[in-house]
Deep mutational scan, measured.
Amino acid sequence: GATAVSEWTERKTADGKTYYYNNRTLESTWEKPQELK
C-alpha cells in the first residue's frame, strides 16, 4: 500500500539546520518523524 513517507520533506533553514516539513498537514518539526525512522 501507500506509505506516509512522501508527505515529509527534509529541508534546511537559512543557517543550515535540518528540519522536516509535511506537505499534507503543513506541519514542520525539528525531530525526525516516525514515518522516516
Score class of each variant (00 low, 15 high):
16 G>Q: 03
8 W>T: 00
20 Y>H: 01
37 K>I: 15
9 T>N: 06
10 E>R: 04
23 N>C: 15
13 T>I: 02
8 W>H: 00
31 E>Q: 09
26 L>W: 07
18 T>P: 05
30 W>G: 04
26 L>A: 11
3 T>I: 13
14 A>T: 10
31 E>S: 08
19 Y>S: 02
22 N>R: 01
21 Y>P: 00
35 E>D: 11
1 G>S: 14
10 E>Q: 06
19 Y>M: 04
11 R>D: 02
36 L>I: 09
36 L>W: 09
31 E>H: 10
20 Y>V: 00
19 Y>G: 00
22 N>L: 01
1 G>Q: 13
2 A>Q: 13
28 S>Q: 11
29 T>P: 01
2 A>C: 15
7 E>K: 03
30 W>L: 07
4 A>S: 12
27 E>V: 09
4 A>Q: 13
7 E>N: 07
35 E>N: 09
11 R>E: 05
33 P>A: 02
3 T>K: 07
7 E>V: 05
34 Q>F: 13
5 V>I: 13
4 A>G: 12
37 K>Q: 15
25 T>Y: 01
11 R>Q: 08
1 G>C: 15
34 Q>C: 15
9 T>V: 15
3 T>S: 13
35 E>W: 05
34 Q>M: 12
16 G>R: 01
1 G>F: 13
37 K>A: 15
11 R>L: 14
22 N>Y: 01
17 K>E: 08
7 E>L: 04
17 K>Y: 09
12 K>V: 13
4 A>L: 12
26 L>Y: 13
32 K>A: 07
11 R>N: 04
5 V>T: 13
4 A>M: 12
23 N>F: 10
11 R>A: 07
25 T>K: 02
32 K>F: 05
4 A>W: 09
25 T>I: 01
14 A>G: 07
20 Y>K: 01
20 Y>I: 00
12 K>G: 03
25 T>F: 02
37 K>W: 14
23 N>I: 15
24 R>F: 10
1 G>M: 14
17 K>Q: 10
15 D>L: 06
26 L>G: 15
13 T>R: 03
20 Y>T: 00
32 K>G: 03
8 W>I: 01
9 T>E: 15
19 Y>I: 04
10 E>W: 04
30 W>K: 04
4 A>D: 13
34 Q>H: 11
31 E>F: 11
26 L>T: 10
5 V>H: 13
7 E>I: 05
1 G>D: 12
18 T>W: 04
26 L>N: 15
32 K>S: 04
16 G>D: 03
18 T>C: 06
25 T>Q: 01
33 P>F: 02
34 Q>S: 12
3 T>V: 13
16 G>Y: 02
6 S>A: 11
31 E>G: 04
21 Y>S: 03
29 T>Y: 06
22 N>F: 01
15 D>E: 10
8 W>P: 00
31 E>P: 02
21 Y>V: 08
14 A>K: 11
25 T>R: 02
20 Y>E: 00
28 S>F: 14
35 E>F: 06
31 E>Y: 09
12 K>D: 03
27 E>P: 00
33 P>R: 02
14 A>N: 08
